[in-house]
């Protein structure tokens, strides 16, 4: 079986993966949520109707979404170096991960907010609520369960992306699988990595699902 040194490496790799996924997911939500809100509210007949802004954001998100992660990672290396001072390692990997996740989160948020009953928005307008109040007190609270599920899916995607980042020196479970499982023919390490990834994804999904259910409880 694994010696204690290997176990330690596996544990620290898992920690690195959690760190990359957690931080990039959090930053992606911070940027992606407002972009998603803009995508919805600037649509035709919506509260901040603005076709120009809508098209510009839509196009930017599409461009971000259409670049494969492996290419994005390499292409933005100068930018990553500018931000973090290096282009290898766990912290450096957070930059491309975040950039890949922002447009993804934006689309998720867009879909979630679009599910909110337009009648409820109309009721808020009739009450005299401002666009900001409608966004913060109606759209986001009403879409909360769906938004939580969106973040869950994003986090799961990021687990996958983070292993790719690992393959080019980003650390984490992907890095481990490549270095031990592939380059040193340690099939058992590869197997352990896969099991941990499966459990991780399962755990994230269950956590997100439970949270969404709790928030959405008693609603129609």
């Amino acid at each position: 079986m694994f010696d204690s040194r290997l176990v330690q490496i596996i544990v620290s790799s898992l920690g690195e993966t959690l760190y990359m996924v957690g931080v990039s997911c959090a930053i992606a939500v911070v940027f992606g949520l407002p972009i998603g809100v803009v995508l919805v509210t600037t649509e035709k007949r919506n509260i901040l109707e603005n076709p120009g802004v809508n098209q510009a954001f839509g196009a930017a998100v599409n461009i971000g979404r259409s670049i494969p992660f492996v290419i994005l990672m390499v292409a933005i290396m100068p930018f990553t170096r500018l931000l973090t001072g290096t282009s290898i390692g766990t912290t450096a990997a957070i930059v491309p991960l975040t950039i890949a996740a922002v447009p993804f989160v934006a689309r998720m948020v867009e879909t979630s907010l679009r599910e909110v009953d337009p009648g409820v928005v109309e009721a808020a307008q009739a009450i005299g609520a401002s666009p900001w109040e409608i966004i913060t007190k109606v759209l986001i609270p009403e879409a909360k369960p769906s938004l939580i599920l969106g973040v869950t899916i994003t986090a799961i995607n990021l687990v996958g992306y983070s292993t790719m980042a690992g393959a080019i020196g980003g650390g984490g479970l992907g890095d481990l699988a490549v270095r031990y499982g592939y380059q040193r023919f340690r099939g058992d390490v590869m197997f352990a990595t896969v099991i941990i990834l499966v459990l991780l994804v399962q755990g994230v999904q269950m956590l997100g699902g439970a949270l969404a259910k709790k928030v959405g409880q008693r609603r129609s």
């Binding site: 009953d117 009648g119 409820v120 009721a123 009739a126 009450i127 005299g128």
Partner: peptide, 18 residues
Amino acid sequence: EARKKIGMIFQHFNLLSS
């Protein structure tokens, strides 16, 4: 401001489910 003095009810009630 003016809308605050004009109440409105709807066919589908339009209550906030949250």
